[in-house]
Amino acid sequence: MRFLLAEDERSLSRALVAILQRDGYIVDTAYDGEQALTLLSTGNYDGVVLDIMMPKLDGIQVLKHLRDRGDRTPVLLLTAKSEIDDKVLGLDSGANDYLTKPFSTRELLARVRAMTRGQSASNDSVLQFGNISLDRTTFSLSSPTGSFRLANKEFAMLELLLCNAGHPITSQRFLERVWQEDAEAEVVLIYISYLQKKLDALHADVCIQATEPDSYILEGCP
């Protein structure tokens, strides 16, 4: 499962990312409310862990924007506040759950599991295009002729391509979504090559094509 963690305190963000990744989640990070909304509009997430006290837009504002546009992604709110009014406001704004800092690792993971219970069994857990399918719970890329278990970055790139099949994705978007750190555009081309070789080995009827400017698109093979 893929999560967005929006937390402006970077040391806490790093700790939470490590906790979630150890439990098998893929985690993207945002450090302010505007960045969180941008990622939520371009990504495809199974859940959001959202701090209330953030710069630019606070967590409640992000949550309201999310719900106003019809996005029902499960949201767990984090806050240092314990007042009942803040909890009620968060839940009334569309949050699925609420966790007050400080909290234990076990409680965080239990809340995340409860919030997303049933998500992995939904139809959205398998993405399909042409004769290939990508299982988001096992990272397996399959076709009628076989399957591969993808590495984390391969999975994240193919997931983005499948969620936007027929539409070009820029190298910069791949770098921001998959690497989230200083990396050269050449690394995107290398991983595109890895994925295309796996698609070829599976006799896929879809291909990853390079387009201008510096973009890639998943479409039916010519």
Score class of each variant (00 low, 15 high):
107 E>R: 13
108 L>W: 03
108 L>Y: 03
109 L>V: 14
112 V>P: 00
115 M>K: 02
116 T>M: 15
117 R>T: 05
117 R>F: 07
117 R>V: 05
117 R>D: 05
117 R>N: 05
118 G>F: 05
118 G>N: 07
120 S>H: 06
121 A>T: 09
121 A>R: 10
121 A>M: 07
122 S>E: 10
123 N>P: 03
124 D>M: 08
125 S>M: 11
125 S>N: 13
125 S>L: 06
127 L>C: 03
128 Q>W: 00
128 Q>M: 01
128 Q>H: 01
129 F>Q: 02
129 F>D: 01
130 G>S: 02
132 I>H: 02
132 I>W: 00
133 S>H: 02
133 S>K: 10
134 L>N: 05
135 D>N: 15
136 R>C: 12
136 R>G: 10
137 T>D: 10
137 T>K: 05
138 T>F: 10
139 F>I: 02
140 S>N: 09
140 S>V: 15
143 S>Y: 13
143 S>K: 11
144 P>E: 13
145 T>V: 10
146 G>L: 07
146 G>P: 06
147 S>D: 12
147 S>M: 11
147 S>A: 15
148 F>D: 05
149 R>D: 14
149 R>W: 04
150 L>W: 09
150 L>A: 09
151 A>F: 12
151 A>N: 12
151 A>K: 14
152 N>S: 14
152 N>D: 10
153 K>W: 00
153 K>Y: 03
154 E>W: 08
155 F>W: 08
157 M>P: 14
158 L>Q: 04
159 E>F: 03
161 L>T: 08
163 C>E: 14
163 C>P: 00
164 N>H: 15
164 N>V: 08
164 N>L: 09
167 H>Q: 13
167 H>C: 07
169 I>P: 00
169 I>W: 00
170 T>V: 07
170 T>R: 14
171 S>G: 06
171 S>P: 00
171 S>W: 00
172 Q>K: 11
172 Q>W: 02
172 Q>Y: 06
173 R>F: 04
173 R>A: 08
174 F>K: 05
174 F>P: 00
174 F>C: 05
174 F>H: 04
174 F>D: 03
175 L>W: 01
177 R>V: 09
177 R>F: 11
178 V>H: 10
178 V>Q: 13
179 W>H: 06
179 W>V: 06
180 Q>P: 06
180 Q>H: 13
180 Q>M: 14
181 E>P: 01
183 A>D: 10
184 E>V: 05
184 E>I: 02
184 E>P: 00
185 A>V: 10
185 A>S: 15
187 V>T: 12
188 V>N: 03
190 I>D: 14
192 I>S: 07
193 S>W: 03
193 S>T: 10
196 Q>R: 15
196 Q>Y: 05
197 K>V: 06
198 K>E: 01
198 K>N: 03
199 L>I: 06
